[in-house]
Measured scan of single mutants.
Amino acid sequence: MSGIALSRLAQERKAWRKDHPFGFVAVPTKNPDGTMNLMNWECAIPGKKGTPWEGGLFKLRMLFKDDYPSSPPKCKFEPPLFHPNVYPSGTVCLSILEEDKDWRPAITIKQILLGIQELLNEPNIQDPAQAEAYTIYCQNRVEYEKRVRAQAKKFAPS
């Protein structure tokens, strides 16, 4: 494992614990031996107030490669969400998460999670990743928002 990646992720964890947006979660997972795995984080993004996503808490896994922060983490909703920019596998399609697009090593975990929260309610229809959600979003916004509200209710924190 890269010392650069681990040191950056340790800084990220410290900064997150000191200050993070209300309702968001970002925690490194534990290895079988109980030690912390900084390369694999369990996160959760709350649906934004005043949107059909409100009330939901959407679980996301963030996986970092050894060359982080040169390369972005892979962000994957578990379980996958109904959304035009979420692949059926759950992987998020967002330009700041793509090395050859808008990724920059200075982007923080907090910025990534806030960017994904923004994307939930403002899909990028130029870059669809899920045919069904994309089609319904474009053709029947009322039905799309109904499905999103049902999903938010399903993923409401207990």
Rank of each mutant, 00 (worst) to 15 (best):
I136Q: 12
V25P: 04
P73N: 02
I112P: 03
K49D: 09
R61P: 09
Q130W: 13
P128T: 08
A152K: 02
C43F: 06
C138H: 08
K65E: 15
Y134N: 05
L63K: 13
L81Q: 01
E122L: 10
W53R: 04
M62P: 04
Q151I: 09
H83D: 04
P52W: 11
Q151G: 06
L60I: 13
I45N: 04
P123M: 01
A10H: 05
Q117K: 08
P123N: 01
G55A: 10
P21K: 06
A15F: 12
A150G: 12
Q11M: 13
Q111I: 14
A152Q: 05
L60T: 09
Y87A: 03
P32N: 13
N121M: 12
Y134E: 06
T51V: 02
A15S: 12
E145W: 07
G56L: 02
I125G: 02
A131S: 14
S158V: 11
C93R: 02
R149G: 06
I136M: 11
A10S: 10
D19P: 05
A131T: 14
P69A: 05
E99M: 11
L9N: 12
R17E: 03
A152L: 00
D127S: 07
A44M: 14
E54A: 09
E12L: 05
M36Q: 03
K30G: 09
K18N: 03
W16T: 04
E12C: 00
N31A: 08
R8M: 11
N124I: 04
K74F: 15
K76M: 13
R147N: 05
E78I: 10
V92P: 08
P128V: 00
K153Y: 05
G47N: 03
E78W: 11
L119C: 05
K65N: 15
L6Q: 11
F24Y: 12
G47C: 13
F58T: 06
T51R: 00
N31I: 10
H20Q: 00
G34P: 00
E145T: 13
K48Q: 09
K76H: 15
L94I: 05
K154I: 08
L38R: 00
V27C: 14
K110P: 09
A106M: 00
E54L: 04
M62L: 08
A129Y: 06
Y144F: 05
E42G: 11
P21M: 06
S70T: 12
A106E: 05
A10K: 15
W41C: 00
D67H: 15
T108D: 10
L94W: 05
A26L: 09
K59Q: 11
A150L: 13
E132F: 06
E122K: 08
F24C: 08
Q111R: 15
F155E: 02
D33S: 02
P128K: 00
Q111P: 15
A156K: 05
E122G: 08
I45W: 07
D67P: 10
E143T: 07
W103T: 03
L97Q: 05
Q139S: 07
R61G: 09
G34N: 07
Q111A: 14
P79V: 14
P28Q: 04
C93D: 07
M62A: 09
N31M: 13
F155S: 10
K18Y: 03
N37G: 12
A5K: 06
G50Q: 10
G55N: 09
G55Q: 11
K146V: 13
R141T: 12
P32I: 13
P73H: 03
L114E: 11
N124S: 06
R141W: 07
S7D: 06
L63W: 00
E143G: 09
Q111L: 13
Q126K: 12
A26T: 00
K153N: 14
R104M: 03
T91C: 15
I116E: 05
T51D: 03
L97W: 10
K154E: 11
E145P: 05
P88F: 09
L57D: 05
E98D: 15
P105G: 10
T51S: 13
P69F: 05
P79T: 13
Q139C: 10
W41D: 00
A44H: 07
P79G: 14
T51G: 07
N85S: 11
C43V: 15
H83M: 02
S158R: 11
H83P: 02
Q139V: 03
P157F: 12
F24G: 07
Q126V: 14
A15D: 15
V25Q: 12
I112A: 09
Q139L: 11
